[in-house]
Lab assay of single mutants.
Amino acid sequence: MLYRITVRNADGEKLEIVVEMSEDEVRALAEELRKAGYEVRVEPIPEGEEP
Rank of each mutant, 00 (worst) to 15 (best):
residue 16 E to K: 04
residue 48 G to E: 13
residue 2 L to D: 02
residue 29 L to P: 00
residue 23 E to D: 08
residue 30 A to N: 01
residue 33 L to I: 05
residue 15 L to M: 09
residue 35 K to S: 03
residue 18 V to H: 07
residue 37 G to I: 00
residue 4 R to E: 02
residue 4 R to L: 06
residue 12 G to P: 01
residue 17 I to M: 14
residue 51 P to E: 09
residue 41 R to H: 13
residue 38 Y to A: 13
residue 12 G to E: 02
residue 39 E to G: 04
residue 50 E to R: 12
residue 40 V to L: 02
residue 16 E to T: 06
residue 17 I to T: 10
residue 4 R to N: 04
residue 15 L to N: 15
residue 25 E to M: 06
residue 4 R to Y: 07
residue 13 E to H: 14
residue 51 P to G: 10
residue 48 G to Y: 13
residue 27 R to M: 08
residue 7 V to P: 00
residue 30 A to S: 13
residue 16 E to M: 07
residue 38 Y to W: 05
residue 43 E to L: 11
residue 27 R to G: 11
residue 26 V to C: 09
residue 32 E to Q: 12
residue 39 E to I: 13
residue 19 V to N: 02
residue 23 E to P: 08
residue 1 M to A: 12
residue 25 E to D: 05
residue 31 E to Y: 04
residue 30 A to I: 11
residue 16 E to L: 10
residue 48 G to F: 13
residue 48 G to I: 13
residue 12 G to Q: 05
residue 50 E to G: 09
residue 43 E to P: 00
residue 12 G to A: 05
residue 3 Y to T: 02
residue 14 K to I: 13
residue 17 I to A: 03
residue 50 E to P: 12
residue 50 E to N: 06
residue 37 G to T: 01
residue 7 V to T: 15
residue 2 L to C: 15
residue 45 I to M: 12
residue 37 G to E: 01
residue 15 L to C: 03
residue 30 A to T: 06
residue 20 E to K: 06
residue 4 R to C: 03
residue 40 V to M: 01
residue 39 E to L: 05
residue 45 I to Q: 11
residue 32 E to P: 01
residue 39 E to D: 08
residue 7 V to K: 03
residue 26 V to E: 00
residue 50 E to H: 10
residue 40 V to I: 04
residue 43 E to M: 05
residue 32 E to S: 15
residue 43 E to C: 03
residue 4 R to T: 04
residue 44 P to M: 12
residue 15 L to Y: 13
residue 29 L to R: 08
residue 32 E to M: 12
residue 4 R to V: 11
residue 39 E to R: 03
residue 18 V to P: 01
residue 24 D to G: 09
residue 2 L to S: 12
residue 26 V to H: 00
residue 26 V to F: 02
residue 30 A to L: 13
residue 23 E to F: 11
residue 33 L to K: 02
residue 16 E to A: 09
residue 8 R to N: 04
residue 19 V to G: 11
residue 2 L to N: 10
residue 26 V to A: 14
residue 20 E to Q: 10
residue 34 R to L: 08
residue 43 E to A: 10
residue 45 I to Y: 09
residue 9 N to M: 07
residue 49 E to L: 14
residue 44 P to Y: 06
residue 32 E to K: 15
residue 38 Y to P: 00
residue 18 V to Y: 04
residue 46 P to C: 02
residue 38 Y to I: 03
residue 44 P to L: 12
residue 48 G to K: 10
residue 37 G to A: 02
residue 50 E to S: 09
residue 49 E to T: 13
residue 35 K to P: 00
residue 31 E to G: 06
residue 43 E to S: 07
residue 51 P to H: 08
residue 24 D to Q: 09
residue 2 L to E: 05
residue 16 E to C: 03
residue 15 L to Q: 15
residue 34 R to Q: 07
residue 34 R to N: 08
residue 47 E to D: 15
residue 30 A to G: 04
residue 47 E to S: 13
residue 24 D to M: 08
residue 17 I to F: 09
residue 1 M to S: 07
residue 41 R to K: 09
residue 28 A to H: 09
residue 35 K to M: 10
residue 50 E to D: 11
residue 37 G to Y: 15
residue 9 N to D: 02
residue 49 E to C: 02
residue 4 R to I: 06
residue 41 R to A: 10
residue 27 R to H: 14
residue 20 E to V: 10
residue 16 E to H: 08
residue 6 T to E: 07
residue 22 S to I: 15
residue 31 E to T: 13
residue 36 A to I: 08
residue 19 V to E: 02
residue 50 E to I: 13
residue 28 A to W: 03
residue 34 R to A: 06
residue 4 R to H: 07
residue 43 E to Q: 12
residue 38 Y to M: 08
residue 13 E to Y: 15
residue 43 E to Y: 09
residue 35 K to V: 03
residue 6 T to R: 04
